[in-house]
Nucleic acid binder design. Structure first.
Lengths: 388, 388
DNA sequence: GCCTGGCACCCTCGCCCTCGGAGTGCCAAC
DNA sequence: GTTGGCACTCCGAGGGCGAGGGTGCCAGGC
């Protein structure tokens, strides 16, 4: 019930992750964008492509170089970094073509190029051979998520790990209540006119709702209601609870009806829907430190983050399949995210929750994708262990 | 249990507060710093003072002008704004004196003056006639805090109101568990080896703890433990729970001992201490939008905010008496808050919680103090209503 | 037909300089 | 003690200049 409990492991991760992240920019994660070594030409011809292999190489070089350095990258640097065996002039032609195709753009005439959203998109799509997270960090994730006490704690840790490894804002939403079953339904009298309805799911999730009791409710009444509720509600799915209570109301003895009605009201504010608000966020400070964001954009994004409902909806929408999803800049429907990218993934097949990170469009997609994926996998695994 | 539930009223407050805040800078809150009207001289002589009345007036003018405009303020402007009946040259002399006393400083030679931390401190101390929050906003606070369903919700709203009205980061920590009594103690089996311990206080606070059950624990065992716990723990203060459980362990039938031991372990991680983590934060976006913070400072402060434990400790420490406390810049022991100020107040006399706001040293102390105070009072009142 | 070196051109950025404005400190006079 | 006056300082905006980096294009070569 704490807003976000800080797992004991945080101190540990901070040290570890800082170390790991220190070289994050330079470690190229065995991607073909790296040093002059890899002029990879996997399939010699894919003729129907808009971009031939060399253009793609150039684009890759521009994206990764721009992400790393933050400055527009010129033809000369592309040659160096992509290890192409052609002259800068040739690359210039390619770049010119890439520009008219909308993949890159110039901040001003006679400056280097920077990727457009479309360029990032293409870059990300070309990463289809999903890069794996490197060993040390993979182990770190495993270690930190392994020792969680309950689901709540686990998700908090997950959020922490994600943000520390990516240095972006991490988002984790709990699995939807659909599949979880109600273990306990309690009604606790707090003050004369008010009680607290407690719903506990088998995942360890606890929902509480205030119930306004009708005047004159006695403890005995409450006992009876408790029994009735216990009988009819236990074992149900969370999103069934409201309906279940509604049906009881009518069948109940008339003197309990008012109380049950109050309980029904309390459960009305959709238990499923409410899951949405149950979102863990971490790493907002890193976002503030990121030079890639303008002051105003930063403020907007932070504001959006504070509106948990919107945020959760976004995240849920973004995670359709079971592979990581990337929403780049303008691809985000939300105005405030125009200059941001979201990398997200579902993490459970049934009753899926979602997790992801949010950062400037200028982010290291390869590493981020690898991290999100690894964390989601590990979370999935730990969850499975935990519930068995 | 949602990280922070967004009260339905948020949309409403957003509109209302925006309106209210729009003129916040110019409305001078009936302080004697305002227009040329008020050359207030309350007590004609307080001779032992380091600062005579005129110096104080000058200081007041500098502080409020600097806060409002964000630029160093010169002697000429002081004359205008403070409505002093002397020439700029005279004011310059006073300013020179104020500077050598350490109340104000020059960003560079031949620029206007800006307040030092000491200057702000003095300004705040001179506000002893606590300014009251103006009518409309006072009503807004009342309205928004009045309709809270339970304590949790109330505190979330409080945090929201505070940050919206001040446009700073708001902090609210829940009342310490000391005085609240345990209403319910439940043990719910979730998986074969694990259970969930639920503690419900009469304030509506719910604590949950994972309990690792010894192998071979049966449902019947759990029932018995539940009964034992119920008998001995109910009605206790939250911070007594652990001790209470400990004593039961020894007296219990040997076959229950292991389970009770596990329960005792679960309650060990101080229930009082843990309260500390229960902190509501709002308005981080406003902080990012505030020009008064450098990028790096901003990041540091945000980072500190993410460490809930430190934050809560700070807030708790800062709120000693029952009047608002102000910690300005260097007065904060924490390195990362060197360029920030904290305005905080306790909000209940018994089992006090704390609330406050955090922002750049260059903040409108008068308004902020008034707001913090009004919100604390209202919160206190609503809490009293709620628990009666 | 594609690649390349060369070249003219463009734009930014840092630098310097200048100039106006704002503010100060000091002084002599009231 | 206060004041107007004055010289001085410093910042910041604006303009000019040169260097650097980048481009686009072209003509020639493979």
């Amino acid at each position: 019930m704490a807003e976000r409990r800080e797992p004991a492991a945080h101190a540990a991760i901070r040290a570890a992750a800082a170390e790991a992240a220190a070289d994050a920019v330079h470690v190229e994660m065995s991607l073909p964008t790296g040093g002059p070594v890899s002029t990879v030409m996997e399939a010699p011809d894919e003729t129907d492509e808009e971009l031939d292999e060399r253009k793609r190489t150039v684009l890759r070089a521009i994206v990764s170089e721009y992400v790393a350095r933050g400055e527009p990258v010129g033809s000369k640097r592309v040659v160096e970094v992509a290890g192409l065996d052609v002259s800068a002039a040739t690359v210039r032609n390619e770049m010119s073509a890439l520009e008219s195709l909308g993949y890159i753009t110039q901040p001003h005439t006679s400056a280097g190029r920077i990727p457009t959203d479309k360029g990032y998109r293409r870059f990300v799509d070309d990463l289809r051979a999903d890069p794996a997270l490197d060993g040390p960090r993979r182990e770190l994730v495993q270690e930190l998520l392994g020792g969680a006490a309950d689901v709540e704690d686990l998700l908090a840790r997950t959020s922490s790990v994600l943000s520390q490894l990516t240095r972006l804002v991490s988002l984790v939403i709990a699995p939807a209540g659909d599949a979880s079953r109600l273990k306990l339904c309690e009604l606790v009298a707090l003050s004369p006119g008010g009680a607290l309805l407690l719903l506990v799911a088998d995942t360890g999730r606890v929902e509480k709702r205030s119930v306004e009791l009708p005047a004159g409710t006695t403890d005995a009444d409450l006992d009876r209601v408790r029994t009735v509720l216990g009988e009819h509600v236990r074992g149900r799915r969370l999103d069934d609870v409201h309906a279940a209570v509604e049906t009881i109301v009518d069948d109940a003895p008339s003197d309990l009806r008012d109380i049950l009605r109050a309980v029904a009201n309390a459960t009305a504010s959709g238990l499923t829907q409410d899951t949405v608000h149950h979102v863990f966020v971490g790493g907002q400070a890193s976002l503030a430190g990121d030079e890639a964001f303008e002051r105003q954009q930063l403020s907007r994004v932070l504001q959006l983050i504070e509106e948990r409902a919107t945020l959760a909806r976004l995240l849920a929408e973004a995670t359709a399949g079971d592979r990581p999803t990337v929403r780049i800049g303008e691809e985000n429907k939300v105005e405030d995210l125009r200059s941001a990218s979201l990398v997200a993934q579902r993490y459970q097949l049934v009753a899926a929750g979602s997790l992801g990170v949010l950062g400037p469009t200028r982010m290291d997609y390869a590493t981020v994708l690898a991290t999100v994926r690894a964390v989601a996998d590990q979370l999935h695994e730990t969850l499975t262990d935990l519930s068995s």
